[in-house]
Simulated scan of single mutants.
Amino acid sequence: MATTPQTPRDGFGGIAFLHTAPGHVATFGVLMTDMAPNIPVRQTVKADLLEAARQAGGLTPEIAALAREALEDLAANGARVVVCTCSTVGGCVSMMQEAGMEEGGMQEAGTPRFLRIDAPMAQAAVRIGGRILVVATVEESLASARGLIERTAETEGRPVDVRGLLVPGAWPLFAAGDRTGYRRTVVATVRAAAGDVDAVVLAQASMATAADELSDLSMPVLCSPRAGVTKAIATWRATARDSAEIQG
């Protein structure tokens, strides 16, 4: 486990990110610096969670328990908001919510909030509606993202046609540090397959750099980092207000 503190402060009280790829540390560090430089940030990388999920063919109960432990550890160390940035193991947060650990507005003030980075993206896709093409470079992430969008659509009562597309050969490029090759492979695959869909969802945070190069497509291309960070910041500010009211 590698932890990178940013703006350290006694008691922490900020936003913690759980990653499964080291490359996300810079991405989310820049976003937080640009969007909310005064909020303390800690980032933890546990690449073994993604590797275990890939070997198991998805998020098993055992892997979910390990992910939950990692998320709860970040909360126990002072984070007000804990964000899982991995679409594959992000289902752990959904499980925690379904188990009653998250109850939206019913939560007590001061209770840490657990978020998955791709939830706002899924909600945006469902609100666009119609034919949604979900693109991923890891098979397990594709299944997780499709499931999230389908559950979101069911919750909101909106009919959607969710299609999946796995980008062959892309993930080894990212894992090897070839970000340019990874981005180009994703962009080329999406351009060839977008066709008549109403929205494209880039399921993994690692794919965000491809979104800018796809901005000329006729349909929206959604990615998770900025939308997820926006949600995390809003949630942090809400918890900060709640805490201030209690102390007042």
Rank of each mutant, 00 (worst) to 15 (best):
F28H: 08
G29V: 04
G29Q: 02
V30D: 12
L31W: 04
T33P: 00
D34G: 03
M35S: 12
A36P: 12
P37H: 11
N38C: 00
N38H: 14
V41S: 04
V41G: 02
R42G: 09
Q43A: 15
T44R: 13
L49Q: 04
A52E: 14
A53G: 07
A53D: 03
R54I: 09
G57E: 01
P61D: 07
E62C: 04
E62R: 10
I63W: 13
A64H: 07
A64W: 05
L66S: 09
L66R: 12
A67C: 15
R68H: 11
A70H: 04
L71E: 11
E72L: 15
E72G: 05
D73V: 12
A76R: 12
N77S: 06
A79S: 13
A79V: 05
A79N: 05
A79C: 06
R80S: 09
R80T: 04
R80W: 06
V81Y: 06
V82F: 08
V83H: 05
S87F: 01
S87D: 07
T88P: 07
G90H: 01
C92N: 00
V93C: 06
V93P: 03
S94H: 02
M96S: 07
Q97K: 11
E98G: 07
E98T: 05
A99N: 11
E102I: 13
E102T: 13
E103V: 14
G104V: 01
M106V: 09
M106R: 13
M106P: 06
Q107S: 14
Q107N: 15
E108Y: 00
A109Q: 13
T111M: 11
P112V: 10
P112W: 10
P112E: 09
P112H: 09
L115M: 11
D118S: 03
P120Y: 12
M121C: 10
A122Q: 01
Q123C: 08
I128M: 09
I128P: 05
G129P: 13
G129C: 08
G129W: 10
G130Q: 09
G130C: 10
R131F: 00
I132L: 15
I132S: 04
L133H: 00
L133I: 14
V135C: 09
A136I: 01
A136V: 04
T137Q: 01
E140H: 11
S141C: 14
L142D: 07
L142Y: 05
L142A: 11
A143P: 00
R146F: 02
R146Y: 03
R146W: 02
G147N: 09
L148G: 02
I149R: 01
I149H: 00
E150A: 08
R151L: 06
A153F: 05
T155I: 08
E156Y: 04
D161I: 15
R163G: 06
L165R: 11
